[in-house]
């Protein structure tokens, strides 16, 4: 967090989160409207963009400014994966590169799998 811990500092961090997330999502929407790319392809593009940012070391400074505005979109997921791989590789050598990404993102993926499973037990898909 680069913003001071005052009320306007917090407010500024929310504003930056809104702007960061907004710009990324509007960019993806532009790809949807202007090209025939499917959502799956766009997700992969943004994911690899996040991995790239993390690899060249540009993600942390951006995250400090935009906060959740860059970590919540899939870019942040990619960056987390890369961060895990890089740090585990530094610690355990090459094998760490294979495990690190999953370990770093396991909180989110685990929650998604378990929550999806439980929801499946409770609900049914509806035709609108």
């Amino acid at each position: 967090m680069i913003f001071p811990e005052t009320w306007w500092g917090f407010l500024l961090s929310y504003l930056m989160a809104f702007i960061g997330g907004g710009i990324l999502c509007a960019g993806a929407q532009l790809l949807i409207v202007k090209t025939k790319l499917t959502p799956a392809r766009i997700l992969v593009i943004f994911l690899i963009f996040g991995i790239f940012l993390q690899t060249v070391g540009a993600y942390e400074p951006l995250n400090n400014v935009f906060g959740a505005g860059i970590s919540v979109p899939i870019v942040g997921f990619g960056a987390s994966l890369a961060k895990g791989s890089i740090s585990y590789a530094a610690e355990y050598g090459i094998p760490g590169a294979f495990a690190g990404g999953l370990i770093q993102t396991a909180f989110g993926i685990g929650a998604a799998v378990v929550a999806s499973y439980i929801v499946t037990l409770l609900f049914n898909a509806k035709a609108k």
Binding site: I32, P39, A125, K126, A127, K128
Partner: peptide
């Protein structure tokens, strides 16, 4: 896609 999948 699945019914509940959010897509435009």
């Amino acid at each position: 896609y699945p019914l509940e999948y959010g897509c435009q």
